[in-house]
């Protein structure tokens, strides 16, 4: 299903000048901040940055940027039809693009979280958080890819999901954790280190992550199957 040519083109689009710097800014900022605080204060204080800022904000933002970069501009200006007018399964197109977005999310989102967490000391909790970030990053990238395939306002819609649903309402109502990708990841990470919270049922967290990932990518492919060329609006 994976198509190397499409993945290569998506990667080239992702690494095109400005986007790349914006994508790079997140991990640099995160690691610099955590290093600074670890040096000035102590590791535990610095670690709080990660569940407070790195995990709930930087990781999804990187995922949004990556997912919308591999699909958004091409859908926006219609040039995706050069890729779609080919005897290539549209699900294959979606999967290939998702793999690139996923790789970017994990490299620029999850990996820096691991590096930053390792800087703060305690490696068990660092690896636990990393596992959580892997789970959440995977699910996020699939969900945001699906959103990018549906609406031109994908970035804002995805941001609202993360910032308003997961962060704002998630902080007010604990029940939101059952429908929060970030919390599913944390729940999986909790298995490795009890320092991470235990917001939901483990089976549910794993199953929900898998389902959202699979359905997200499938849905993106299905939207591409019905991709219609519309006039300018």
């Amino acid at each position: 299903m994976m198509n190397a040519t499409i993945a290569k083109l998506a990667l080239q689009a992702l690494l095109g000048r400005r986007r790349f710097y914006l994508l790079l800014a997140f991990p640099v900022l995160l690691i610099a901040l955590v290093s600074l605080i670890t040096a000035l204060a102590d590791g535990d204080a610095a670690f709080d940055i990660l569940p407070g800022l790195g995990y709930p904000l930087v990781l999804p933002l990187v995922a949004i940027l990556a997912a919308s970069s591999v699909l958004g501009p091409e859908v926006d200006d219609g040039s995706i039809i050069y890729l779609l007018a080919k005897p290539v399964s549209r699900y294959g197109v979606a999967i290939s693009k998702w793999v690139v977005a996923l790789a970017a999310t994990l490299t620029a989102g999850a990996l820096p979280i691991l590096v930053a967490a390792l800087i703060t000391g305690d490696s068990t909790r660092a690896w636990a958080l990393f596992v959580g970030a892997l789970v959440a990053g995977t699910t996020y990238s699939a969900l945001f890819l699906a959103i990018s395939a549906v609406t031109r306002h994908a970035v804002i819609a995805s941001l609202m999901f993360v910032l308003i649903w997961e962060s704002l309402l998630g902080n007010l109502f604990t029940g939101v954790a059952w429908l929060s990708i970030g919390q599913w990841g944390l729940r999986v990470g909790h298995e490795l280190s009890a320092q991470l919270p235990d917001p939901a049922n483990l089976t549910w967290a794993i199953l929900a992550s898998l389902v959202v990932t699979a359905v997200g990518v499938w849905f993106a492919g299905d939207r591409l199957r019905s991709f219609s060329l519309r006039g300018e609006d």
Binding site: R18, L22, L61, L65, G72, P73, D76, R152, A154, V155
Partner: peptide, 10 residues
């Protein structure tokens, strides 16, 4: 548009 939004959010 997308980059402007992400930039502003940053």
């Amino acid at each position: 548009r997308g980059f402007a939004v992400v930039g502003s959010v940053m």
